[in-house]
Amino acid sequence: MPQTETKPRSIANQETNMSLDNNSQLGRRGPDELVPSRYAVRVGEIDVLVVSDGVLPLPTEMLGHNADPAVRAAWLGEMFLPADAFDWSLNVALVRSGDRTILIDAGLGLDPNLNLPRAGQLVRRLDSAGIDLGSVTDIVLTHLHMDHIGGLLVEGVKDRLRPDLQIHVAATEVTFWEAPDFTHVHMPQGFPDALKATAKRFMAEYRSHLRQFDEQHEVAPGVVVQRTGGHTPGHSVVRLASGGDRLTFAGDAVFAVGFDHPDWFNGFEHDPEEAARVRVRLLTELARTGEQLVATHLPFPSVGRVAIDGDAFRWVPIFWDY
């Protein structure tokens, strides 16, 4: 099978024009890359590389545990999705603005006890793209669920990161994980314990690198992280703006079903009612501005726009640019 590589026309000469890692290997193919795993876009003068961390199989009930099972099954059928479980995409983004190279979230990692061999691919895929972890100046964490921080706990990763690395996260999120409340979630068995253990280990290893903010913080020119709450108390989105172009990395504020049914509760939401309000506000804003959207669990490469279709929203994926 021939290997596939994404090289958008807007920055087609990635080897010479795209400076995410200041070397000439960003566009090279990795030896094991049989499917597309990275997609580059440009937001004004800001370079963005969406990278797939793989996929996470989960029960379909997690998409809307408050929905009528028959209605949920009908939606899955209309989307040609299996009724019991399907693969959730795991997307992260690498952003270059000025002299800052920013990783937005860090993927699931490679915990052998989770038995998730198709997830936790971030480090390997950054390596295959020729991106040196030591070039990352900042990490923005949308929240501290394990599929957003686990990549930082992979053996050897911390040693490859720079000693002055800054990790930006909402102060509310840090406080929450000191004694997390799982009263309102609807997760598969074992997930709450795994989430708590991963967050505890992350805080032990990286606390000295944390740069906490309250509601909003500018990480680099045109790169602003904003707390939304809802999914977790400190859940945040990252807004990119440059030269009239805009893109929002929405983390877990938006899931695939959220366009048709924004009021459905996702099983990982710690405050599902607030999460639904956050989702509606964000999708309404994105439909109004027409800016691009990337989210952790939308199908890779997860780049598109939002339209309003009657009483619901509509996801408008981009046409891939080669």
Rank of each mutant, 00 (worst) to 15 (best):
R96F: 06
F176T: 00
T175S: 08
V71Q: 13
D263C: 04
H143S: 10
G98K: 05
V254M: 00
V238Y: 01
W177Q: 00
L81F: 08
T175G: 02
R162L: 08
F313I: 11
P188M: 05
G54N: 08
P8H: 05
G64D: 10
D311V: 07
I104H: 01
Q3A: 09
M1S: 14
I102Q: 04
R9F: 14
L298K: 00
G27D: 04
A40S: 15
V35C: 02
L282C: 09
L195I: 08
Q25H: 11
D159C: 02
N115I: 05
D214M: 07
W75Q: 06
P262H: 05
V136R: 01
R118W: 13
V157K: 02
T137L: 12
H148L: 15
V278I: 15
G251K: 00
W315K: 04
G30F: 02
H231T: 13
K7R: 12
P163H: 11
F268W: 10
G98W: 07
T4H: 11
G258R: 02
G310M: 07
I11C: 12
A74V: 06
N113G: 12
V225G: 04
S19M: 12
G230D: 11
F86L: 15
L210N: 11
R162V: 14
V174T: 03
R281I: 08
M62Y: 06
H143N: 11
F202E: 09
A241D: 09
R72N: 10
V154C: 08
V71S: 13
A12T: 06
D84N: 07
E173D: 03
T16S: 14
I167E: 00
P299F: 07
H209T: 10
Q25E: 08
L90R: 01
V48Q: 03
R96P: 09
P69C: 15
A83S: 07
A307R: 13
D127Q: 09
H297E: 09
L144G: 05
L103K: 01
V51P: 02
A307V: 13
K196L: 15
R201I: 15
N66L: 10
N13F: 07
P192F: 05
A70W: 12
I131V: 15
D47S: 13
K196N: 15
L152G: 02
W315L: 05
L114S: 11
G190W: 06
W88F: 14
P299Y: 03
Q226G: 03
N66I: 09
G243P: 06
L298R: 01
V294Q: 01
M146F: 11
H148M: 14
E274M: 14
F255S: 02
F80A: 15
L133E: 07
G251L: 00
R305Y: 13
P57W: 09
P117I: 11
F202T: 08
T175I: 03
P163F: 06
R227A: 07
V157Y: 06
A204K: 14
G150H: 05
D309C: 10
G230Q: 11
N17F: 12
